[in-house]
Amino acid sequence: MRVALFVTCLADTLFPSVGQATVRLLERLGHEVVFPSEQTCCGQMHINTGYQREAVPLVRRFVEQFEPYDAVVAPSGSCVGSVRHQHAMVARRAGEEALALRAESVAARTYELSQLLVDVLGVEDVGAHFPHRVTYHPTCHSLRLLRVGDAPLRLLQQVRGIELVELPDADQCCGFGGTFAVKNADTSTAMLADKMRHVLSTGAEVCSAGDSSCLMHIGGGLSRLRSGTRTLHLAEILASTEKEPA
């Protein structure tokens, strides 16, 4: 299958290894990955902070960039959540009904990585090797907005050598929430503290998730604690092999 990669502005800029892992993984599974080069950002930060007017050109850009493809994948539950649940609304609010209809059409073929693998490509064993103790944070938008269900866990369970440990109170938000983390930094930090406590209670070497933003938040906290537990995106674990370990 030919899949267009929406790498997301965050992974593009700060976590390129997540995008690279996504490419490596899909190519290993025999799919063609293309990277529409004029892509930038889905506009979620603007929309969720109230700047919908500023988000309209970003929605248009996303639609124009990805319209030609049958399947679009992003290694981010929240960016796909924005594409699926906000793009058409933003266009409509700006009075751009035609754009809204196009956005709905593109959104219907835009998938979060685990959704693409399990629900569209029908694969659970991606041939990965990752001999480490891992706990998985399901992230709010994957869990409740996209309803990816147990797709990420089914993928992880097939990884050779992995020791998967359940994260207590996994469905609780880590406290990131985009600009919430800055506007309400104290509350965000209190939520993060509990998430980190649960992560550390598992004794995992790695805390994984399907969203670089939540991982940046959790990882930033764990790094400050110098806890020794590192964060890795789901894509990086799934791309990991004995020859090319993550």
Binding site: L14, F35, R224
Partner: peptide, 30 residues
Amino acid sequence: LAGWTSSRDLPAPPAESFRAWWRRTRGEVS
């Protein structure tokens, strides 16, 4: 952004963005 770094580190930007990596390794394809 001090609200972020009061309790969390931020990763320093990598040497190469994803799109720079793509351009370097795959060339301009789409």
